[in-house]
Simulated scan of single mutants.
Amino acid sequence: MDLDLTDEQRAFAEAVADFCKRESGTRLRRDELTDGGRHAHHQGLYQKLADLGWLEVALGECMVDTCLFLEHTGYGMAPIGGFATSAIVAGAIQRFGSEMQRATVLRGITDGRTYSIAMSEPEAGSDVAALACRARPTTSGFVINGQKTWCSNAHFADAILLVARTGGGPGDHDGLTMLLVPADTPGLRISGIDTMGGREVNDLYFTDCAVPADAVVGTIGQGWRQLMAGLNLERLILAALMLGTARRAFDDALAYVRERRQFGRPVGSFQALRHRIADLATEIECCRLLVYRTAALVDRDPSRVLPRESSMVKLKTTEVAREVALAGMQMMGGYGYATEYDMERHVRAALVSTVYGGTSEIQRDIIGKTFGL
């Protein structure tokens, strides 16, 4: 890569790529690890990464390193879906967690444990101020009642970073609080949601779910501000992962159009497909530069929130990943639609990436506001 990487970073990227090729490099092996694509996370494979010490990049001490890991595991289709949400939780705990929370959660992540975050509700997605799930203060802590939905990886997480209302009412940004809730806490029921991507997301039902006072992450009532402080990390994580997916979908499509012959020659030699390949390659290169430039800006000043850059990188990379995957399916014809090939998995992964972590429409709105509009 023609990026400003150190020799150590280049070696790390190569090692991650080699690991993925060795451990999940064939369709047969990936099917074994994911039960035919039904599950996005394999704990045994994840534990191998922990044993190598590589999950430390989830702590975000160097965002370029984190992005390299995400890009190459995304490209290698490694079933480690729990990493992204764990890294997002790690960021919140590092910035706002107590000494005990940092010791428990951050060490847990590097040891191979996974974490999830619960924010969306049936009536509150993009409109975070509308959150209604309530954590009522008691003499010993909080009692939580309400529902969360679209909670990624909660079904195998050790604990869930919950954003709940401790004050005010729906429509108020103030009054939201982060709480760390162990997944086995009585009163919490986790129910899977069937999706085209398999078992990834869940409904969470809280019924008189009691947590102690030390479950609070940061300051009571400041959950909104704490969420905003983590935007750089969350959006970069999603962008870097989709950069890997886009690259993989492109390479799979390229290999196909080089080999597939019609009318006596490879279909990639026809101008229509050759130009499409050229356009997609250019778009991916733009995404790669945007991802690592934004990561470098974060590393330069981790305390600085970058609303424009982080929204741009999430918007551009997820939209391009979707474009590449859909174009790959089109170029492969019926084979791109068949489950025998990986392209249909790329499509499923890319389509939802423009929705989670803030939709493309929300990202465009944020970018527009940074220009005073």
Score class of each variant (00 low, 15 high):
G230K: 00
G221M: 08
D208H: 10
I237P: 09
W224T: 14
A210M: 03
T207I: 12
L238Y: 05
D203S: 08
R225L: 08
L238K: 10
N232G: 05
W224F: 15
D203I: 02
A210S: 07
L241H: 09
V211T: 05
W224N: 13
L233D: 14
L227I: 15
D214V: 03
A213V: 06
L204K: 06
E234F: 01
C209A: 14
L204H: 04
N202G: 07
L241F: 03
L227Y: 14
L236M: 13
W224I: 02
L231K: 07
G218N: 09
G221N: 06
L238N: 13
G223C: 08
A215F: 05
D203Q: 10
A215N: 04
M242Q: 15
G230N: 13
A210W: 00
T219P: 03
M228T: 10
G218D: 11
R225E: 15
Q226K: 00
P212I: 00
A229I: 02
V211G: 10
Y205G: 01
F206D: 01
I237D: 07
T207G: 08
L238S: 10
M242P: 00
Q222P: 02
G223H: 08
A240I: 06
M228E: 13
T207D: 15
E234M: 03
A210T: 08
V211N: 11
A215C: 11
N232Q: 08
L238I: 13
Q222Y: 10
L236F: 12
L227M: 14
L204D: 14
A240P: 09
V216W: 06
L236G: 11
A229G: 06
L233P: 00
C209L: 09
D208F: 03
P212A: 01
R235K: 15
C209V: 05
F206W: 03
L231F: 04
L238F: 05
G223L: 04
A210P: 01
V217N: 07
M242T: 03
Y205D: 12
D203N: 15
D214A: 03
A229N: 11
L233T: 06
G221Q: 09
Q222I: 00
L204Q: 07
Q226F: 05
L227P: 04
E234I: 02
A213K: 10
G223F: 12
L236I: 14
L231V: 12
T207L: 11
Q222W: 08
Q226W: 05
G218Y: 12
D203G: 04
Q226D: 15
Y205E: 13
V216C: 15
G218T: 02
L227T: 03
Q226E: 14
L227W: 14
N202E: 14
N232I: 01
D214N: 15
V216E: 10
D208I: 01
A229T: 03
Y205K: 02
A213D: 12
E234H: 01
F206R: 00
L241T: 10
L227R: 10
T219Q: 11
G218A: 08
G230H: 07
G221K: 05
L204M: 14
L241S: 14
A215R: 00
A213H: 10
N232Y: 07
G221Y: 08
L227E: 07
A239D: 02
D208K: 02
E234G: 07
I220G: 03
N202V: 01
L231C: 01
W224D: 12
A215H: 03
